[in-house]
Protein backbone atom coordinates (compact mmCIF):
# COMPACT_ATOMS: atom_id res chain seq x y z
CA UNK A 1 0.00 0.00 0.00
CA UNK A 2 1.31 3.49 -0.85
CA UNK A 3 0.81 6.09 1.86
CA UNK A 4 -0.33 9.62 0.84
CA UNK A 5 3.10 11.19 1.43
CA UNK A 6 4.87 8.40 -0.46
CA UNK A 7 2.36 8.86 -3.25
CA UNK A 8 3.16 12.57 -3.42
CA UNK A 9 6.88 11.87 -3.65
CA UNK A 10 6.27 9.25 -6.31
CA UNK A 11 4.28 11.77 -8.27
CA UNK A 12 7.02 14.40 -8.11
CA UNK A 13 9.66 11.81 -8.92
CA UNK A 14 7.86 10.65 -12.05
CA UNK A 15 7.37 14.22 -13.21
CA UNK A 16 11.02 15.13 -12.65
CA UNK A 17 12.13 11.95 -14.44
CA UNK A 18 10.07 12.86 -17.48
CA UNK A 19 11.28 16.46 -17.38
CA UNK A 20 14.95 15.53 -16.96
CA UNK A 21 14.82 13.14 -19.90
CA UNK A 22 13.89 16.12 -22.04
CA UNK A 23 16.47 18.39 -20.41
CA UNK A 24 19.31 15.94 -21.03
CA UNK A 25 18.54 16.13 -24.71
CA UNK A 26 20.16 19.60 -24.71
CA UNK A 27 23.56 17.96 -25.11
CA UNK A 28 22.74 16.88 -28.62
CA UNK A 29 23.94 18.98 -31.52
CA UNK A 30 21.69 20.51 -34.13
CA UNK A 31 20.59 17.91 -36.67
CA UNK A 32 22.34 14.87 -35.19
CA UNK A 33 19.80 12.98 -37.27
CA UNK A 34 19.11 14.54 -40.65
CA UNK A 35 18.40 13.89 -44.31
CA UNK A 36 21.17 13.76 -46.91
CA UNK A 37 22.49 17.18 -47.81
CA UNK A 38 23.09 20.43 -46.01
CA UNK A 39 21.28 23.66 -45.24
CA UNK A 40 24.16 25.82 -46.47
CA UNK A 41 26.95 25.06 -48.95
CA UNK A 42 30.37 23.88 -47.70
CA UNK A 43 33.20 26.34 -47.15
CA UNK A 44 36.66 26.22 -48.73
CA UNK A 45 37.94 24.20 -45.77
CA UNK A 46 35.28 21.57 -46.45
CA UNK A 47 35.38 21.53 -50.27
CA UNK A 48 38.82 21.71 -51.86
CA UNK A 49 37.34 22.23 -55.33
CA UNK A 50 36.33 25.79 -54.43
CA UNK A 51 38.70 28.56 -55.57
CA UNK A 52 40.62 29.91 -52.60
CA UNK A 53 43.65 31.85 -51.46
CA UNK A 54 45.42 31.92 -48.11
CA UNK A 55 45.87 35.34 -46.55
CA UNK A 56 47.30 35.93 -43.08
CA UNK A 57 46.93 32.21 -42.42
CA UNK A 58 43.23 32.16 -43.28
CA UNK A 59 41.74 30.32 -46.23
CA UNK A 60 39.49 32.68 -48.18
CA UNK A 61 37.05 31.89 -50.95
CA UNK A 62 38.32 34.08 -53.79
CA UNK A 63 38.54 34.32 -57.53
CA UNK A 64 39.88 36.82 -60.05
CA UNK A 65 39.06 37.68 -63.65
CA UNK A 66 41.08 39.57 -66.27
CA UNK A 67 44.78 39.70 -67.02
CA UNK A 68 46.88 39.38 -63.84
CA UNK A 69 48.96 42.44 -64.72
CA UNK A 70 45.98 44.72 -65.45
CA UNK A 71 44.88 47.38 -62.99
CA UNK A 72 43.50 45.66 -59.89
CA UNK A 73 39.90 46.22 -58.90
CA UNK A 74 39.22 44.68 -55.49
CA UNK A 75 35.50 44.14 -54.90
CA UNK A 76 34.53 44.24 -51.22
CA UNK A 77 31.20 42.80 -50.18
CA UNK A 78 28.78 43.97 -47.51
CA UNK A 79 27.60 42.51 -44.27
CA UNK A 80 29.53 41.99 -42.12
CA UNK A 81 28.80 38.38 -42.88
CA UNK A 82 27.49 38.62 -46.44
CA UNK A 83 29.44 37.38 -49.48
CA UNK A 84 30.52 38.45 -52.95
CA UNK A 85 27.97 36.53 -54.99
CA UNK A 86 25.61 39.50 -55.21
CA UNK A 87 28.41 41.62 -56.70
CA UNK A 88 29.35 39.26 -59.53
CA UNK A 89 28.03 41.77 -62.10
CA UNK A 90 31.35 43.50 -61.48
CA UNK A 91 33.03 40.77 -63.53
CA UNK A 92 32.15 43.03 -66.47
CA UNK A 93 35.10 45.28 -65.59
CA UNK A 94 37.42 42.45 -66.63
CA UNK A 95 36.28 43.01 -70.24
CA UNK A 96 37.48 46.61 -69.95
CA UNK A 97 41.08 46.01 -68.96
CA UNK A 98 40.83 45.39 -65.22
CA UNK A 99 41.90 42.48 -63.06
CA UNK A 100 38.72 42.03 -60.97
CA UNK A 101 39.19 40.31 -57.62
CA UNK A 102 36.36 38.91 -55.51
CA UNK A 103 36.85 37.44 -52.06
CA UNK A 104 34.66 36.45 -49.15
CA UNK A 105 35.85 38.01 -45.91
CA UNK A 106 36.91 35.55 -43.23
CA UNK A 107 33.95 33.95 -41.49
CA UNK A 108 31.63 34.93 -44.35
CA UNK A 109 30.43 33.40 -47.60
CA UNK A 110 32.44 30.29 -48.34
CA UNK A 111 35.57 31.41 -46.49
CA UNK A 112 36.98 29.69 -43.42
CA UNK A 113 34.85 29.85 -40.28
CA UNK A 114 35.87 31.04 -36.81
CA UNK A 115 34.06 31.38 -33.49
CA UNK A 116 32.56 34.73 -32.60
CA UNK A 117 35.43 35.43 -30.17
CA UNK A 118 37.85 35.51 -33.10
CA UNK A 119 36.38 38.80 -34.38
CA UNK A 120 37.64 41.01 -31.60
CA UNK A 121 38.48 43.98 -33.82
CA UNK A 122 37.77 45.35 -37.28
CA UNK A 123 41.49 45.65 -37.95
CA UNK A 124 41.73 41.95 -38.76
CA UNK A 125 39.50 42.57 -41.78
CA UNK A 126 41.46 45.67 -42.73
CA UNK A 127 44.68 43.64 -42.50
CA UNK A 128 43.01 40.91 -44.52
CA UNK A 129 42.16 43.38 -47.30
CA UNK A 130 45.80 44.47 -47.27
CA UNK A 131 46.81 40.84 -47.66
CA UNK A 132 44.37 40.27 -50.53
CA UNK A 133 45.80 43.26 -52.41
CA UNK A 134 49.34 41.98 -51.82
CA UNK A 135 48.34 38.49 -52.97
CA UNK A 136 47.04 39.66 -56.35
CA UNK A 137 49.41 42.55 -57.02
CA UNK A 138 51.99 41.39 -59.54
CA UNK A 139 54.15 44.52 -59.78
CA UNK A 140 54.60 47.79 -57.92
CA UNK A 141 53.38 49.91 -60.83
CA UNK A 142 50.10 48.07 -60.96
CA UNK A 143 47.27 50.43 -60.07
CA UNK A 144 44.86 49.37 -57.34
CA UNK A 145 41.20 50.38 -57.07
CA UNK A 146 38.73 49.47 -54.37
CA UNK A 147 35.01 48.99 -54.97
CA UNK A 148 33.13 48.51 -51.73
CA UNK A 149 29.43 48.14 -51.22
CA UNK A 150 27.57 48.81 -47.95
CA UNK A 151 29.71 47.32 -45.16
CA UNK A 152 32.36 46.69 -47.86
CA UNK A 153 32.43 50.43 -48.56
CA UNK A 154 32.92 51.04 -44.85
CA UNK A 155 35.74 48.49 -44.81
CA UNK A 156 37.43 50.24 -47.75
CA UNK A 157 37.29 53.51 -45.79
CA UNK A 158 38.56 51.78 -42.63
CA UNK A 159 41.46 50.44 -44.67
CA UNK A 160 42.37 53.92 -45.94
CA UNK A 161 41.94 55.36 -42.46
CA UNK A 162 44.29 52.70 -41.06
CA UNK A 163 46.77 53.12 -43.94
CA UNK A 164 46.61 56.70 -45.24
CA UNK A 165 49.62 56.06 -47.46
CA UNK A 166 48.32 52.88 -49.04
CA UNK A 167 48.70 52.98 -52.83
CA UNK A 168 45.00 53.09 -53.66
CA UNK A 169 44.47 54.84 -56.97
CA UNK A 170 40.69 55.14 -56.84
CA UNK A 171 37.76 54.37 -54.61
CA UNK A 172 34.13 53.55 -55.42
CA UNK A 173 31.80 53.43 -52.43
CA UNK A 174 28.22 52.22 -52.62
CA UNK A 175 26.01 53.34 -49.73
CA UNK A 176 28.30 52.82 -46.74
CA UNK A 177 26.15 53.10 -43.60
CA UNK A 178 28.58 55.57 -42.08
CA UNK A 179 32.18 55.98 -40.97
CA UNK A 180 31.19 57.15 -37.50
CA UNK A 181 29.06 55.12 -35.13
CA UNK A 182 26.18 57.58 -34.90
CA UNK A 183 25.90 57.84 -38.68
CA UNK A 184 26.04 54.08 -39.07
CA UNK A 185 23.60 53.21 -36.29
CA UNK A 186 21.19 55.89 -37.48
CA UNK A 187 21.18 54.40 -40.95
CA UNK A 188 20.75 50.85 -39.64
CA UNK A 189 17.79 51.92 -37.53
CA UNK A 190 16.14 53.57 -40.51
CA UNK A 191 16.83 50.62 -42.81
CA UNK A 192 15.27 48.15 -40.34
CA UNK A 193 12.21 50.23 -39.71
CA UNK A 194 9.65 47.46 -40.15
CA UNK A 195 6.13 48.02 -38.93
CA UNK A 196 5.57 46.49 -35.49
CA UNK A 197 2.79 44.20 -36.69
CA UNK A 198 4.29 43.38 -40.09
CA UNK A 199 4.84 39.91 -41.51
CA UNK A 200 8.48 40.84 -42.17
CA UNK A 201 9.23 41.37 -38.50
CA UNK A 202 7.60 38.10 -37.68
CA UNK A 203 9.52 36.34 -40.49
CA UNK A 204 12.75 37.67 -39.03
CA UNK A 205 12.34 36.43 -35.49
CA UNK A 206 9.68 33.73 -35.09
CA UNK A 207 11.95 30.86 -36.21
CA UNK A 208 14.18 31.49 -33.18
CA UNK A 209 12.15 28.99 -31.18
CA UNK A 210 12.74 26.21 -33.71
CA UNK A 211 16.37 26.76 -34.68
CA UNK A 212 19.34 27.34 -32.41
CA UNK A 213 22.99 26.37 -32.47
CA UNK A 214 26.09 26.33 -30.33
CA UNK A 215 29.13 28.51 -31.06
CA UNK A 216 30.75 25.98 -33.37
CA UNK A 217 27.57 24.91 -35.18
CA UNK A 218 28.14 27.27 -38.08
CA UNK A 219 25.74 25.51 -40.43
CA UNK A 220 22.61 26.31 -38.44
CA UNK A 221 23.88 29.70 -37.23
CA UNK A 222 24.60 30.76 -40.81
CA UNK A 223 21.30 29.35 -42.02
CA UNK A 224 19.42 31.33 -39.41
CA UNK A 225 21.17 34.49 -40.55
CA UNK A 226 20.15 33.64 -44.13
CA UNK A 227 16.53 33.63 -42.96
CA UNK A 228 17.01 36.90 -41.15
CA UNK A 229 18.74 38.74 -43.99
CA UNK A 230 16.18 37.59 -46.54
CA UNK A 231 13.72 39.87 -44.74
CA UNK A 232 15.78 42.83 -45.92
CA UNK A 233 14.84 41.91 -49.48
CA UNK A 234 11.11 41.91 -48.77
CA UNK A 235 8.79 44.39 -50.41
CA UNK A 236 8.09 46.32 -47.19
CA UNK A 237 11.76 46.88 -46.42
CA UNK A 238 12.69 50.56 -46.74
CA UNK A 239 15.95 49.74 -48.57
CA UNK A 240 14.03 49.33 -51.83
CA UNK A 241 15.62 46.29 -53.44
CA UNK A 242 14.09 44.82 -56.58
CA UNK A 243 14.25 41.18 -55.53
CA UNK A 244 15.98 38.65 -53.30
CA UNK A 245 19.71 39.09 -53.27
CA UNK A 246 21.72 36.09 -54.52
CA UNK A 247 24.20 34.77 -51.95
CA UNK A 248 26.40 31.83 -51.13
CA UNK A 249 26.14 31.67 -47.37
CA UNK A 250 25.85 34.15 -44.52
CA UNK A 251 28.48 34.34 -41.78
CA UNK A 252 26.71 34.46 -38.43
CA UNK A 253 29.74 34.58 -36.12
CA UNK A 254 31.24 37.62 -37.83
CA UNK A 255 27.84 39.31 -38.06
CA UNK A 256 27.09 38.76 -34.39
CA UNK A 257 30.60 39.73 -33.29
CA UNK A 258 30.59 43.06 -35.09
CA UNK A 259 26.96 43.75 -34.18
CA UNK A 260 28.04 43.55 -30.54
CA UNK A 261 31.39 45.29 -31.02
CA UNK A 262 30.00 48.42 -32.71
CA UNK A 263 27.83 49.73 -29.86
CA UNK A 264 30.63 48.93 -27.42
CA UNK A 265 33.46 50.81 -29.11
CA UNK A 266 31.38 53.41 -31.03
CA UNK A 267 34.07 53.75 -33.71
CA UNK A 268 35.11 56.80 -35.66
CA UNK A 269 37.00 55.81 -38.80
CA UNK A 270 37.31 59.28 -40.32
CA UNK A 271 40.45 60.76 -38.71
CA UNK A 272 42.72 60.15 -41.71
CA UNK A 273 40.26 60.15 -44.59
CA UNK A 274 40.98 63.82 -45.34
CA UNK A 275 44.45 62.68 -46.43
CA UNK A 276 43.01 60.78 -49.38
CA UNK A 277 43.25 63.33 -52.19
CA UNK A 278 41.95 61.24 -55.07
CA UNK A 279 38.35 61.87 -56.02
CA UNK A 280 35.98 59.26 -54.57
CA UNK A 281 32.98 58.03 -56.55
CA UNK A 282 30.15 57.75 -54.03
CA UNK A 283 26.97 55.91 -55.11
CA UNK A 284 23.59 56.05 -53.46
CA UNK A 285 20.25 54.79 -54.69
CA UNK A 286 16.99 56.48 -55.49
CA UNK A 287 14.75 53.84 -53.87
CA UNK A 288 16.52 53.34 -50.55
CA UNK A 289 14.30 55.44 -48.32
CA UNK A 290 16.68 54.96 -45.40
CA UNK A 291 19.64 56.56 -47.22
CA UNK A 292 18.99 59.56 -49.48
CA UNK A 293 21.12 62.42 -50.74
CA UNK A 294 21.42 64.18 -47.38
CA UNK A 295 22.96 61.09 -45.73
CA UNK A 296 25.18 60.51 -48.77
CA UNK A 297 26.47 64.09 -48.60
CA UNK A 298 27.05 63.83 -44.87
CA UNK A 299 28.89 60.50 -44.93
CA UNK A 300 30.97 61.31 -48.01
CA UNK A 301 32.08 64.65 -46.53
CA UNK A 302 34.83 62.77 -44.68
CA UNK A 303 36.69 62.73 -48.01
CA UNK A 304 38.03 65.98 -49.53
CA UNK A 305 37.06 65.16 -53.12
CA UNK A 306 33.82 63.37 -53.89
CA UNK A 307 31.65 62.74 -56.91
CA UNK A 308 28.14 61.83 -55.75
CA UNK A 309 26.00 59.71 -58.05
CA UNK A 310 22.39 58.75 -57.50
CA UNK A 311 21.55 55.42 -59.09
CA UNK A 312 18.06 55.85 -60.43
CA UNK A 313 15.37 53.20 -60.19
CA UNK A 314 17.33 51.02 -57.75
CA UNK A 315 17.59 50.25 -54.04
CA UNK A 316 20.46 49.62 -51.65
CA UNK A 317 21.84 46.72 -53.68
CA UNK A 318 22.08 48.84 -56.78
CA UNK A 319 24.93 46.77 -58.25
CA UNK A 320 23.04 43.47 -58.16
CA UNK A 321 19.89 43.96 -60.17
CA UNK A 322 19.57 44.96 -63.85
CA UNK A 323 18.16 48.48 -63.47
CA UNK A 324 20.66 49.61 -60.87
CA UNK A 325 23.58 47.91 -62.56
CA UNK A 326 22.82 49.32 -66.00
CA UNK A 327 22.58 52.81 -64.52
CA UNK A 328 25.73 52.53 -62.39
CA UNK A 329 28.15 50.60 -64.55
CA UNK A 330 28.93 53.31 -67.16
CA UNK A 331 29.57 55.88 -64.41
CA UNK A 332 31.88 53.52 -62.53
CA UNK A 333 33.72 52.55 -65.71
CA UNK A 334 34.26 56.19 -66.70
CA UNK A 335 35.55 56.93 -63.22
CA UNK A 336 38.01 54.02 -63.26
CA UNK A 337 39.20 54.74 -66.78
CA UNK A 338 39.84 58.37 -65.84
CA UNK A 339 42.27 57.18 -63.17
CA UNK A 340 43.79 54.14 -64.88
Amino acid sequence: MILPMQKQHLFIGLFLLAASSLLFSCDKSFGDTRPDGRLVPPTVTEDSSLPSITVNGVQLHAEAYGHPDSALLIVIHGGPGSDYRYLLNCKAFADHGFRVVFYDQRGAGLSERFPQSHFSSVEILSDELHGVIAHYRTHTDQKVFLLGHSWGAMLAAIYLNDRPNAPIDGLILGEPGGFKWDDFSGYINRSQDFKLFSESLNDAIYADQMLSGKDDEHEILDYKLDLLTSVGDSKDSPVGNEDFLPKWRSGAATFMAYSELGPRIKPDWTQNLHLYNTKVLFLYSENNKAYGRAHAEHVSSAFPKVELFETKDAGHDMLSFPRGWNNSFPVMLNYLNSLK
Binding site: S25, F30, G31, T33, R34, P35, L39, D208, L211, S212
Partner: peptide, 13 residues
Protein backbone atom coordinates in the same frame (compact mmCIF):
# COMPACT_ATOMS: atom_id res chain seq x y z
CA UNK B 1 21.48 21.02 -53.15
CA UNK B 2 19.80 22.46 -50.07
CA UNK B 3 18.39 19.67 -47.91
CA UNK B 4 14.72 19.04 -47.33
CA UNK B 5 13.47 16.67 -44.66
CA UNK B 6 13.48 15.98 -40.94
CA UNK B 7 16.24 17.28 -38.67
CA UNK B 8 16.55 16.08 -35.05
CA UNK B 9 16.97 18.04 -32.78
CA UNK B 10 16.90 21.68 -33.86
CA UNK B 11 16.63 23.97 -30.83
CA UNK B 12 16.19 24.31 -27.11
CA UNK B 13 15.49 27.37 -25.02
Amino acid sequence: DIANGWFVPTAGN
